[in-house]
Amino acid sequence: MSDGRERLLSGIRDSLGRGALDADTRAALERRLRFPRANVVPARGQHGSRDALLAGFITEAERVNTSVQRLPGWDGVATAVADFLRAHNLPQRVRVAGDALFKNVTWSAAGGLEIEAGPAEAADTASVTGAYAGIAETGTLMLLSGPGSPTLLNFLPPNHIVVLPEACVVGTYEDAWHRLRAEVGTGIAMPRVINWITGPSRTADIEQTLLLGAHGPRRLHVLLVDGASPAH
């Protein structure tokens, strides 16, 4: 195995017409990785005010078939979940992540809503998760894996409800990376999975007909909660 590695690397150097890189070049490349620079950043995600930022996020999210509902505070979350399930004729049962975010939510506020904890199972019809960030540029949700946020919750159930504190909405991909670097780090602490989710699952593989809900959820519903600081 290790000689496959050497063969490949020396083949590359031959093709590039040089030997191994000198120390100075390596140091420069190392710096480029250590202190990542942004490339061109579209103006579209860069909003002047918080209000414009949130409006931008909602517009872009709705363009890709994500539904967004604004809530004045945490109190409304349980009822909003129950209402969503009712509106779509779904059983009053959700799989909920053990995300610290949900310590703010009183599930019993929605009478009759059944809460199941733990990782997703094949028979689940709906899940509720938090999100690490919302990215206004393309209406994208950014979710991190971890003990309180197993990845399959985002994919197995056909209905996915995401609770997103307004304070977590950022403008651009670069803003999202910046926040991740500052708060979580991109070293060994970086979670195994970072999901960027932009709308419900879809396919156009049969006669280019667009259909929602290919493997992942058919519906993606965001509860955008005001006045809330993220619990992260």
Binding site: V64, P119, P147, T151, R192, V193, T198, G199, S201, G216
Partner: peptide, 24 residues
């Protein structure tokens, strides 16, 4: 590719399941 601004799922995956992870 498809004229979407971004594909629906863009996933950054790093290594195997971590201690405490429930799936992966």
């Amino acid at each position: 590719a498809t004229g979407q601004d971004l594909s629906v799922y863009t996933t950054f995956t790093t290594g195997p399941r971590r201690p405490g992870d429930l799936d992966g």
